[in-house]
Structures are given as C-alpha cells and as structure tokens.
Design a protein around this nucleic acid. Structure first.
Lengths: 122, 122
DNA sequence: TAGGAGCTTGACGTCAGCGTCAAGGTCAAG
DNA sequence: CTTGACCTTGACGCTGACGTCAAGCTCCTA
C-alpha cells in the first residue's frame, strides 16, 4: 500500500498526472481515513503502461478502451462482452494502421539514412 | 501549378492546415503576382504524408526532421551531412520505440480479444 | 507545539494543431 | 460594375494532458 507520491516516483510521472488518470477512469484509488489516496504496488506497472501509451500518441480515451487488459487496475467484469469485443477489434484496426504508417516512415527514413551514409563514405 | 484551395481538396486537409504547415516550415509556397500561394502538384503527396504523420501522433517538429526525404517539398541540399545523419538515426530510434510500444499493446489487446471471443463461443 | 513534508480540492495556465471568425483584396462571369 | 468564389493576414477559440499555483488539512519529528 503506497501513497500518491511514492507511486508517482516509482512510475516516473507526476502526482498531477495520477490524479488526472483517476479523473479519466484509467486507475482507481482507495482512500485512507484521512482522505489520502492509497494504491497497491500493481498500480505502478499499470501507470507505467498508461504513461507509455499516452506518450506515444494514444488518447486517454483510447487507453481507457483496453486499460483493464493491461493490469489489475480496473477489474470491470466483462458484462457486455459483445460490444467490448467489437471495440477491441476496432482498436486493433486503429493500432494496425498506426503501426503500418510508422513502419512505412521508418522504412523511408532508413533508406535515406543509408543513402546519406554512402555519400559520406564515397 | 495549383492554388491553396485545390491543394487542400486534393490532399484532404484544410487551407488553414496548409498555412500552418508552411508556418512550421514543413512545406514551401511560391507567390503569384497577387500574393496568392502557388504549389506544384508534388506538394499534394507531401501534404498527404505530413497529415498522416501528424495524425498518428508525431509532432510537427518530428515531421520537420525528415520531411525532405518524403518528397521534393524541401530540397534543402544536405549541407551538414553528418549532423543530418545523426538526427536521422535518432529519429529512427524513436520510431522503433513507438512501433515496439504499439506492437506490444496490439499483442496484448489481441490476446484479450481472443479470450473474450472464446468466452462467447463456449 | 512548531515545523516541514506530504496530502487534499479547486482553478487557472500552457502548448500543439488546427477551427473559426473578421476585414479586406482579386478576379472571372453575368 | 457588381456579385460571388477564392485568396490574404491577423487574432482569438478549442481540446487534451497535464503544470502550477493557492489555501488548507495531516502527520512525524524535534
């Protein structure tokens, strides 16, 4: 059981970010008798994942769609399985698009890098 | 030679976006005698690339780093080849990270999707 | 019992990537 | 010669993911 400051340090984010994630429904927090947020250590890993995803350009709404499959943060029993499955498929498609676009850029950039390298050698 | 409206339509972006790209140094535009921006048709493809990259989460600063290898938009003779090459390498690394992170998420999401699908079948 | 570190909830600030007026110039068509 | 489509340069507005105060409570320590 950790408080917000410790989780923030361990996960490499700010306390403000943690409150924001909670506000967006990405993480949950128990409360101590004094009102302080309390987290279990699993949350650190979840928060790392979330921060990583946000950092590479996904929105918090994106992340929310499948955050419960990243860790034990949001158990949320799969009630509406069919809708959830459809959502997952859509998100998979979007991810594939993103990956493809980035891979394409990577390829072109690598080619140009090679070209430049050869110019420098020759 | 096309004007801004036509380029915008062809590339599927707004004229405002085109002015913004120019402001950021991502594209160049000649000027007609009346002050109107003039583009050659190659610009359409370049703009499509730029928009695509921005859309998947790269910053305009990111895009600026290698926009000249996407088309003929910014010829910019490779003067400082060494620095350019280093920049390219860095960007390649960043792209690899992004691709890896997305691929990882994709994998986990796919696994969860499978699990859900089986629950629905059984 | 007085600090100081850490926590709380607002609430306003920031930055990117445009959207959206506002006010006005240009030009082919009627 | 006027309308209307298209262009120009500001300049303010918006959204997301926080940063950064402000004002006040909690707890351990000296």
């Amino acid at each position: 059981m950790m408080r917000i400051g410790e989780v923030a340090r361990c996960a490499g984010v700010s306390t403000r970010a943690l409150r924001y994630y909670e506000e967006q429904g990405l993480i949950n927090a128990e409360r101590d008798h004094n009102g302080y947020r309390i987290y279990d250590s699993d949350t650190v890993l979840l928060v790392r994942d979330i921060a990583r995803l946000l950092h590479i350009g996904l929105s918090s709404e994106d992340v929310l769609q499948f955050v419960h499959c990243l860790g034990k943060g949001n158990p949320e029993p799969p009630k509406d399985c069919v809708a959830l499955l459809r959502t997952f498929s859509e998100r998979l498609g979007a991810l594939d698009e993103r990956i493809a676009a980035l891979t394409d850029v990577r390829k072109r950039l690598a080619a140009e890098t090679d070209r430049l390298a050869k110019v420098l050698e020759g």
